[in-house]
Design a protein around this nucleic acid. Structure first.
Length: 884
RNA sequence: GGGGGGUUAGCUCAGCGGUAGAGCUCCUGUUUUACAAGCAGGUGGUCGCAGGUUCGAUCCCUGCACCCCCCACCA
């Protein structure tokens, strides 16, 4: 056992809780204790009920941003809640090599030193990334530790670890052998800046103001030639045909003709193609550029057209572009437009269309003909769709399944090869005779012809190809490890909806295909974090750095804020002043604990003694505590972290601190030993259960207080989570104390209205409507409380006299002795109240006079309306009697 | 082009058939020995607009307006 981290200095009463709440003084220590004690590792025999999550691995070179902090907080709440609920919890940490993103950042770093990666060479470059990765990983790790994440660091993984790389190779080879991975020459999305292919998902489409150009091509034997429309005139240099619809009379004159490509002076055929050409659109004539448009490429395949690449991988025109060779594609566009305009061949009009941009660097994506590797996805998608349809996998919120289906049902093959250096090298080897071998082990010679040496494909795999294996590769798959048997499939996956397609869908496909099982049963997709309703961005200056926030407010406050901000919508709105509020809540708890511990000090107060008679206040707070515990569990089951946090907040602050603590003060001070002991037992129970309920949200402060309260340092993390007991529910106590609190509020109200100081003792009248009601007797039971909290000089359980300020609250007529002249001061207020009451009475009366209402509305509702009306009439009587 | 979400108090958001809630802000009072980072009280809302269903609509339906997001081979 480690030593209790309790500080020896600066204590006051309250068994060692310092007066000032300083989260930094204990957060780090408790994390170290938990880790040293192995609390983050699953405890219990294999096969016993467990709860498993894998972290969405953050980019190894990244920094924890507020969105990560949110997701990790949610996961940690689940992990701690399940752990305390008695499950064997495993939450696996790790990081992602994030190929294109990491390579980009590294290139930028090198550029600052004036180094181009190509000068460095592949090996040296990768060495540098590894070196940098080592320190960056520690950053991420320490950030998650500061947040308090109960991750099992002994199982930490990195997507480029040797065993995970083995998993990637195994997956690739298997898909290849099953015919689900193929290599081919197609038009892909190409980023000329990154100089790599990217998948469809990595292309961000943005509506752009551009132009639609119409170019006239001369056609032999056809006067006026052919007008074709394009948004990318520079691609015309790569045209190898014009296409028309076979049944379009507008263009039938072009059938079988030959057109002359302007500028290039090349002859191209006019072809007929019903698939490519939309009869409704434009001139009905389409230029066909197989090398620079996916549709055109398909058309070219159908008609056996040649492909002419005129824009190179660097975005510059190729030699095939003739005199434009070497020009940037956009410069070429300008010059070509100018030239065609000069030749009287071109007109243009403003045009809005959607232009693809690189997700990473925002460069305009170029469709580009190249040889790439693809995953044939439809066969994988089919079972993945079924898994969600049948409920094997559940989305929370459920509405995401619709988005999932619509994407999965229209899914396209996945281009997985990247012309990058940082990543998993594609396990394909080519021999000098051109035979391609795909193999898990590097083959020493060509299995087909025996030739050597073999050359490995220089490309790497899309990062998501390895990420999709994450839920099982972290456990050692394809080896049949103990962890894989014990912890796969996982239970819950928590991630932002922005990677539903990139990651979640692919994990489902991969999990089902490779392991035959869904990788998780529940996917909680959360919104993206916004600051004060605005999208977070550096230019707005509204970025909240979680580490700075932790330093300023404490990790517990940051976590509580994030949990409270959780919502089922697409955004999670976080504001700085919520952080302040959460810190205030932590302080509140701290001080309540100081008070409680001071009361417990010097007495055993071990537990609530069986058979002891509890006061109404005791019964009330225990009832609230139980109801809160039940509610919290329910909300957590439903991933409603905001509701769960809110329920505990309301209990601790408003019920326990504002309510019960004030109610027990007189008991602790004045009552006999027996009642005092009972109250102490209840106090202790409330404190400990509050700490337990709050622990998943605020692990540090709760563990700190728990230590002082129990002398069992570092054990709250494995203490039982309160479930709430039906037996503790106490409607009678809740009714009485509820009524009492309403009465007290109204008395304080009177004081304000009548200018009576809050502390001046006054005479009170409290008269329940009917002497038979339970309230009539139970309110007498809380007379000492009413007297104390209401600052009453006297309490009479009779109808108030005319001279008193009067009202009806919770079915109870109450009155407070006032000086008559002071009533004038509040006349406006009373008048206003009366007007509102009259309005409501009118409305309710009309309702009750409506026969169909009385007939059709549920009896309980009608009854409620009647009671409300009665009470209002009583209130009106009480208030109007009070008018001067 | 298709789909999804949003519009509730000055701000950020809950609620989603029985005439509205939280936190922050604001105003007033209060240094009551756990906490002034507190306590007590209060102000503030025709729940985007128009119809419909219903005894009853912020909540369900239809349409409209504005905002956000996603998907789409929109020459």
């Amino acid at each position: 056992m480690p030593e209790s981290p309790g500080s020896a200095a600066g204590e006051d009463s309250g068994r060692g809780l310092p007066k000032n709440f300083e989260p930094a003084s204990f957060e780090g220590r408790w994390y170290a204790v938990w880790e040293a004690e192995g609390r983050f590792q699953p405890e219990g025999p294999p096969g016993s009920p467990r709860f498993v999550m894998v972290i969405p691995p953050p980019n190894v070179t990244g920094k924890l941003h507020i969105g990560h902090a949110y997701g990790r907080t949610v996961e940690d709440i689940l992990a701690r809640w399940k752990r305390m609920s008695g499950l064997r919890v495993l939450w696996v940490p790790g990081t992602d090599h994030a190929g294109i993103a990491t390579q980009m950042v590294m290139e930028r770093q090198l550029a600052k030193q004036g180094i181009d990666r190509r000068d460095l060479g592949r090996e040296k470059f990768i060495e540098r990334v590894w070196a940098w990765k080592a320190e960056a990983k520690d950053t991420i790790q320490s950030q998650m530790k500061r947040l308090g994440c109960s991750l099992d660091w002994t199982r930490e993984r990195f997507t480029l670890d040797s065993d995970l790389s083995r998993a990637v190779r195994h997956a690739f080879v298997r898909l290849y052998e099953e015919g689900l991975i193929y290599r081919g020459r197609y038009v892909v999305n190409w980023c000329p800046r990154c100089e790599t292919a990217v998948s469809d998902l990595e292309v961000i489409h943005r509506e752009t103001e551009g132009a639609l150009y119409k170019i006239r091509y001369d056609v032999t034997g056809v006067a006026g030639g052919a007008m074709v429309a394009t948004t990318r005139p520079e691609t015309m240099l790569g045209d190898t045909a014009l296409a028309i619809h076979p049944d379009d009379p507008r263009t039938s004159r072009l059938k079988g003709r030959t057109a002359m490509l302007p500028i290039a002076g090349r002859e191209i055929p006019v072809i007929e193609d019903a698939i490519l050409v939309n009869r409704e659109f434009g001139t009905g004539i389409v230029k066909v550029t197989p090398a620079h448009d996916a549709n055109d490429f398909a058309t070219g395949q159908r008609h056996g057209l040649p492909s002419v690449v005129v824009i190179g991988p660097d975005g510059k025109m190729t030699t095939a572009a003739g005199e434009y060779a070497g020009l940037d594609r956009f410069d070429a566009r300008k010059q070509i437009v100018a030239r065609l305009t000069e030749e009287n061949r071109l007109t243009s009009e403003p045009y809005r269309n959607s232009v693809g941009h690189c997700q990473r660097c925002d460069t305009v994506i170029e469709p580009y003909l190249s040889t790439q590797w693809f995953v044939k996805i439809a066969p994988l998608a089919e079972p993945a769709i079924r898994a969600v349809r049948t409920g094997d996998i559940r989305f929370v919120p459920e509405s995401w399944s619709k988005t999932y289906f619509s994407w999965m049902e229209n899914i396209h093959d996945w281009c997985i090869s990247r012309q990058l250096w940082w990543g998993h090298r594609i396990p394909a080897f080519t021999c000098p005779n051109g035979h391609v071998t795909v193999s898990e082990q590097d083959p020493p010679s060509c299995p087909t012809c025996g030739a050597a040496p073999l050359e490995q494909d220089p490309d790497v795999l899309d990062t998501w190809f390895s990420s999709q294996l994450w839920p099982f590769s972290v456990f050692g798959w394809p080896e049949e490890t103990r962890d894989l048997a014990d912890f796969y499939p996982t239970d819950v996956l928590v991630t932002g909806y922005d990677i539903l397609f990139f990651w979640v869908a692919r994990m489902i496909m991969a999990g089902l295909h490779f392991t035959g099982r869904a990788p998780f049963s529940t996917v909680h997709l959360h919104g993206l974090v916004r600051i004060g309703g605005e999208k977070m961005s550096k230019t707005r200056g509204n970025v909240i750095d979680p580490l700075e926030a932790i330093s300023e407010f404490g990790a517990d406050a940051v976590r509580f804020t994030l949990a409270s901000a959780a919502s089922s919508g697409a955004t999670v709105s976080v504001e700085r002043n919520r952080m302040t509020g959460s810190r205030g809540f932590a302080t509140k708890l701290w001080n309540a604990a100081r008070f409680t511990l001071a009361q417990l000090d010097g007495g055993p107060a071990a537990e609530i003694l069986a058979g002891r008679s509890l006061s109404l206040a005791d019964r009330w707070i225990l009832s609230r505590l139980s109801a809160t515990s039940t509610a919290v569990n329910g909300h957590l089951e439903e991933f409603r972290f905001d509701e769960a946090a809110g329920a505990i907040y309301a209990f601790v602050w408003h019920d326990l601190c504002d309510g019960y603590l004030e109610m027990v003060k007189p008991v602790l001070r004045d009552a006999g030993d027996r009642d005092r002991e009972t109250a102490r037992g209840v106090l202790r129970r409330c404190l400990l259960d509050s700490l337990a309920l709050l622990h998943p949200f605020m692990p540090f402060i709760t563990e700190e207080i728990w230590d002082k309260a129990t002398g069992r340092p570092g054990t709250l993390i494995v203490a039982p989570f309160p479930k709430g007991e039906a037996a503790a529910g106490d409607a009678a106590a809740e009714m009485t104390i509820g009524a009492m609190r309403e009465i007290l509020t109204r008395i304080r109200n009177f004081r304000g209205e009548r200018g009576v100081s809050p502390t001046e003792p006054v005479a009170l009248w409290i008269a329940p409507d009917s002497p038979d009601e339970p309230l009539a007797t139970s309110l007498r039971d809380v007379e000492p409380l009413l007297r104390q909290l209401g600052r009453a000089a006297s309490i009479s359980f009779e109808a108030p006299p005319d001279s008193a300020a009067k009202d009806v609250v919770a079915g109870v007529s109450i009155g407070m002795q006032v000086e008559k002249p002071a009533a004038v001061k509040s006349a406006d207020r009373v008048e206003k109240d009366l007007a509102a009451i009259d309005d409501e009475i009118t409305g309710l009366s009309a309702k009750l006079r409506n026969p169909s209402y009385v007939e059709k509305a549920p009896a309980a509702v009608v009854e409620k309306t009647r009671r409300r009306l009665v009470e209002l009439e009583e209130r009106r009587a009480a208030l109007s009697a009070d008018m001067p």
